[in-house]
Amino acid sequence: MNSAADLERFLHEQIPLTVAMGVQVAECDDTRLVLTAPLAPNRNHLQTAFGGSLHALATLSGYSLLWWLLREPHAHIVIRESTIRYKNPVRGDLRAVCHSPAAQELERFRRDFARKGKARISLDAVVEYDDEIAVRFSGVFVAINS
C-alpha cells in the first residue's frame, strides 16, 4: 500500500462493513491515520452516532494504521482485546484518529514480527466531534505472518 487511496480500496475490498459505513481514509502517514464516516448510515434512534459504529471506526483506525506501518502483504492482523469509553455523543460525521506508537514500541513490534512471524502492539485512538474527544479507544492488535 502506497497511498491513502490504496488503503481505502483494501478496506472496502476486504472488510465489507467499511463500505456500508461509508468509511474513508482522510489522512495516512507514518505518524497518524484518520478515518471518517458520514453520520447517516451510522446513526441510532437518537440521531447520534451508533456506539457500534464508533467502536468499529476506532478499531478500524488502529487496524489500518498497523497495516500502513507494517507494510507486509502476507500478514494477518486481528484485534485481540479492546476497551472503549464513550464520553460525549457524536451528532455529526465520525472522525477517528489513531497515532503511531512510540518509535521503540514500533521497532520492537517489527523486530518480533520479523523474527517470530508474529507480534502484538497496543494502539490508542480517539473519535473527535466538535473539537472535543467523544470516544477513547485502546486496543491490542496482533500480526501473524501467513
Rank of each mutant, 00 (worst) to 15 (best):
V90Y: 01
L35P: 00
L94M: 14
R111S: 14
D30S: 15
I15A: 10
T18K: 02
H12A: 14
W67I: 14
P73T: 12
F109Y: 12
A75K: 07
L69M: 11
A102P: 10
L46C: 05
P89G: 12
V126E: 12
K118R: 15
A4P: 07
R108E: 11
P89W: 11
A37F: 04
V90W: 03
N42Y: 06
Q24M: 09
D93W: 03
I77Q: 05
A20C: 10
A114L: 12
T18F: 03
A119E: 04
V90S: 03
L46N: 12
P41R: 06
S100A: 15
Q47W: 07
E132P: 00
A134T: 10
I144N: 09
L46K: 10
M1W: 05
E72G: 08
A20K: 12
E27F: 06
H12L: 08
I77C: 06
L123V: 04
T31R: 14
Q14P: 02
S61N: 07
G62F: 02
L17T: 10
M1A: 14
N88L: 15
L7P: 00
W68H: 13
Q14C: 13
E132W: 00
V126P: 00
L60T: 01
R91K: 15
Q104W: 00
A5H: 09
N145L: 14
D6P: 04
E81R: 14
A56Y: 02
N88Q: 15
F10A: 04
A20D: 12
V97L: 11
G51N: 09
L57Y: 03
V78Q: 05
A26F: 09
V23I: 15
D6Q: 10
S122A: 14
F109V: 08
D6A: 14
V135L: 06
C28E: 01
R115S: 10
P101G: 05
Y86E: 08
S82W: 02
A143V: 08
R85F: 04
W67N: 13
R91V: 06
R85S: 14
E107I: 08
P41M: 07
A102Y: 07
H55Y: 15
A75D: 06
L70C: 08
D112G: 00
G52N: 03
M21P: 03
F137Q: 03
E72K: 12
F141H: 05
F50I: 05
L7D: 01
N2H: 12
S100Y: 01
T59W: 01
R32M: 11
C28R: 00
H55T: 14
E72N: 11
G92V: 10
V19S: 11
T48R: 04
Q104R: 08
L106S: 06
A96D: 05
K118D: 04
